[in-house]
């Protein structure tokens, strides 16, 4: 099994997702749960980015003097990168709403423990 940069970063991404799921499912503190959720999002983004990576390639920006053909054959693949730009913002916005709800719930209930607030 040969490990190169792409495979290693794919594995890092999956590891981040697993750590995040573990935190979100098993930790009791709501803030830590949300931190875990942030890691899941990061992991999936990293996964997408490593898909667009091309070993020995160049950045996807055509500098002056680059022949179009040569550039197209050597540049990294742009579609996953564009998807990640969208997905980062989506993750951050849902995070903000969740933290807002947690703050209000703390004011009401005086606790940020999931078993106390969410368990009925």
């Amino acid at each position: 099994m040969i490990i190169d940069v792409q495979l290693a970063s794919l594995f890092t991404a999956v590891a981040l997702v697993v750590i995040g799921i573990f935190a979100a499912v098993f930790l009791d503190n709501l803030i830590k749960k949300v931190i875990g959720l942030a890691f899941i999002g990061d992991g999936v983004n990293l996964f997408l980015i490593s898909m667009g990576y091309k070993a020995g390639g160049i950045v996807y920006i055509q500098l002056p003097g680059m022949a179009a053909d040569w550039f197209a054959q050597n540049s990294a693949y742009p579609l996953p990168f564009a998807l990640v730009l969208t997905s980062i913002v989506i993750g951050a916005s849902t995070m903000a709403v969740m933290l807002g709800i947690i703050i209000v719930l703390y004011k009401k209930r005086g606790s940020i423990s999931a078993s106390k607030i969410l368990g009925e």
Binding site: V17, A24, L30, L37, V44, L48, G91, M98, I117, L118
Partner: peptide, 27 residues
């Protein structure tokens, strides 16, 4: 509020996993 938070937490686990599935298909 409690229900909404619960729904969002579950959603924030599932939605990235859905995106991961989409990423696998894309790849």
């Amino acid at each position: 509020y409690e229900t909404a938070l619960k729904y969002m937490i579950i959603g924030s686990i599932v939605a990235p996993l859905l995106l991961l599935g989409i990423a696998l298909l894309l790849g």
